[in-house]
């Protein structure tokens, strides 16, 4: 499988001059194209920090993160923002839609930043909203949508820019079981049909059960890496 993401001797240390806390401690790991991977571990194990480092939202204390051969840990701020815009989709725990924009506008937000043409944007956004089952909610604002629907819009938004991979930080944490199951169905379908790579950080057993690969972190270190497809 083609490698999309690789980290080498990755460290993220908070308070290095006082009481150092190694949120990510010497992590070297690779993720291939089309993976559907859950990063699990107890609270404070470094799941979100690892995702932030991979997504270029945080800078490693040492080590490197390469995405498609680009060392994102050494990109300058503006290049990093541009890199994120064109290569990474994000799904956050608390939906994080823009409340003044409709589902359609939220989904097309990244494509607008990418300066995609109106025709292309409208087609892609409607296509994605249909795929996540919200074609009839395109004109609704976030407050008019349920939590599960908002998170589905967030998934559609993450995919709108056709990213290399999607990073999802606890995507089902605030959803009931039905909504969580629906969301996982959609993401699994997109992974299967569009070969989108998904990396989740999660506590949720429902996500862990659906993931093809489960990476377990503890105290910032990878203590287990289980590929369920290979047994």
């Amino acid at each position: 499988m083609e490698t999309v993401i690789s980290t080498k001797n990755l460290f993220r240390t908070y308070n290095p001059d006082t009481i150092p806390v190694h949120a990510v401690n010497d992590v070297s790991i690779t993720f291939g194209r089309g993976e559907f991977t859950a990063i699990v571990g107890p609270s404070g194990s470094g799941k979100t920090t690892l995702l932030n480092l991979i997504g270029g939202l945080d800078t490693p204390t040492s080590g490197s993160v390469e995405v498609n051969g680009t060392d994102v840990s050494h990109l300058k701020a503006n290049k990093l923002i541009d890199f994120r815009l064109h290569n990474i989709g994000f799904v956050f725990q608390s939906y994080n839609l823009i409340p003044v924009l409709t589902a359609f506008e939220n989904t097309g937000f990244i494509m607008l930043l990418q300066k995609a043409s109106k025709e292309e944007r409208e087609k892609r956004v409607m296509d994605l909203l249909e795929q996540v089952g919200l074609g009839d909610k395109a004109g609704s604002r976030p407050r008019e949508l349920s939590g599960g629907q908002q998170q589905r819009v967030a998934v559609a938004r993450a995919l709108a820019s056709r990213p290399q991979f999607v990073l999802a930080d606890e995507p089902t944490a605030n959803l009931d079981s039905v909504a969580a199951s629906n969301l996982l169905d959609i993401m699994e379908k997109l992974n299967r049909e569009e070969h989108v790579t998904f990396l989740f950080s999660t506590h949720d057993q429902r996500v862990i059960d659906r993931a093809y690969r489960v990476v377990t972190l503890e105290d910032g270190k990878v203590i287990r890496d289980e590929n369920k497809r290979n047994g």
Partner: peptide, 16 residues
């Protein structure tokens, strides 16, 4: 704060 952080994470640069 959270919303601005989110749109910056998504790729809205500082000039915008």
């Amino acid at each position: 704060t959270r919303e601005l952080g989110m749109i910056m994470a998504l790729g809205m640069n500082k000039v915008r």
